[in-house]
């Protein structure tokens, strides 16, 4: 399934589902089929897209990163599978979730299976730095998920907590996706540092986008789903700053999965959403400057990226930013 908003021809190969599916080649053919039909189906494929374009950016052929891109998407999908069990979600991307098709216990194990497939595929390529990076990324991912889970039912989370979770849970995999091509091309340390910084910025911006979209009526997802799942996201955090008298309501709501209507006016919600989008735009602005520095650093190192690849990365940033408007 292609993201209906992203019609650029150069991006289309990354939306071919067969790139990511397990295909029933392992021992658990039946389970792989269920996984392929649910959590590996559809999606924005942002992580493989970034990895692919950074491969071109660093002068690598498309094929050089396909196994890593596949692994990135499988790791990401595995976390989604686990999330769906925790959140008791029945649909994702318009189709039934894994846990809606098979029992929770199996869904958790299926997520672990998918994770193991991704890690095994990367380890077979025998690039120690990349394998270590993936292991570190998984550790960060799980830490972020644990910290977020610990915040379930807590209304007075701090902005530092939200930033940390965004960095660990979301930006970590973005970092790995952008750094894999850098490592494969033996980029010098300053280039790697700039790549890491760029990926962190867009990863955090992506999380703020997600938080803003949570309060969008046109997203196709349940309105204020995070709140109903017991979590304060960046928009809710800002709403509590705007209207501190609603703290008690939020605390009750987080603990009881209440279906009461929200206590904020549309103007307050709009202000909080806009503040979150503005924070996302600030991160994107910083990411652009990182990218500019990255191009300069590579040019100085005699490895100037092609204009085409730079423009495609800019195009990805634009697509992200349009979601912030």
């Amino acid at each position: 399934m292609v993201d209906k908003d992203f019609r650029d021809d150069w991006a289309l190969p990354w939306f071919d589902s067969s790139l990511y599916t397990l295909g029933g080649k392992g021992a658990l053919t039946g389970l792989e089929g269920v996984i392929d039909a649910s959590v590996l189906r559809g999606g924005k494929r942002l992580r493989p897209l970034l990895m692919g374009e950074f491969a071109r950016f660093f002068g690598l052929p498309f094929d050089a990163v396909i196994p890593y891109a596949r692994a990135a998407e499988q790791v990401h999908s595995a976390t989604l599978a686990h999330d769906d069990v925790i959140d008791e979600s029945s649909t994702r991307r318009g189709s039934l979730t894994l846990n809606a098709r098979i029992e929770n216990r199996k869904a958790i194990l299926a997520g672990d299976y998918l994770l193991a497939e991704g890690i095994y595929a990367v380890s077979k390529l025998k690039n120690a730095a990349i394998v270590e990076g993936l292991a570190a990324t998984l550790r960060e991912l799980v830490t972020g998920e644990l910290l977020q889970n610990e915040a379930r039912g807590i209304s007075d989370v701090s902005s530092s907590h939200l930033s940390r979770v965004a960095d660990l849970k979301t930006a970590s995999l973005f970092r790995w996706c952008c750094l894999v091509p850098a490592h494969l091309s033996n980029a010098p340390e300053p280039v790697i540092a700039l790549t890491r910084e760029f990926a962190t910025r867009i990863g955090v911006a992506f999380q703020w986008i997600d938080d803003a979209v949570d309060f969008s009526l046109s997203s196709g997802k349940p309105y204020a789903a995070d709140l109903r799942e017991g979590l304060v996201n960046r928009v809710t955090f800002r709403l509590l700053e705007i209207a501190p008298h609603t703290q008690a309501w939020v605390q009750r709501s987080l603990s009881s999965n209440s279906s009461e209507s929200l206590p904020w006016t549309p103007e307050e919600i709009q202000s909080a959403v806009e503040d979150t989008r503005s924070a996302g735009r600030a991160q994107m602005g910083a990411a652009r400057r990182n990218l500019s520095d990255l191009i300069s650093a590579m040019t100085h190192a005699g490895q100037a990226p092609s204009q085409e690849s730079s423009q495609r990365i800019e195009r990805i940033l634009q697509r992200l930013e349009e979601r912030l408007l």
Binding site: R281, G285, R289, I295, S310, E321, E322
Partner: peptide, 16 residues
């Protein structure tokens, strides 16, 4: 290469 930026025409664009 000069990076293009999306013109958001928003008056709350970040300042560097």
């Amino acid at each position: 290469m000069k990076m293009k930026t999306l013109s958001t025409d928003k008056n709350d664009s970040p300042v560097f």
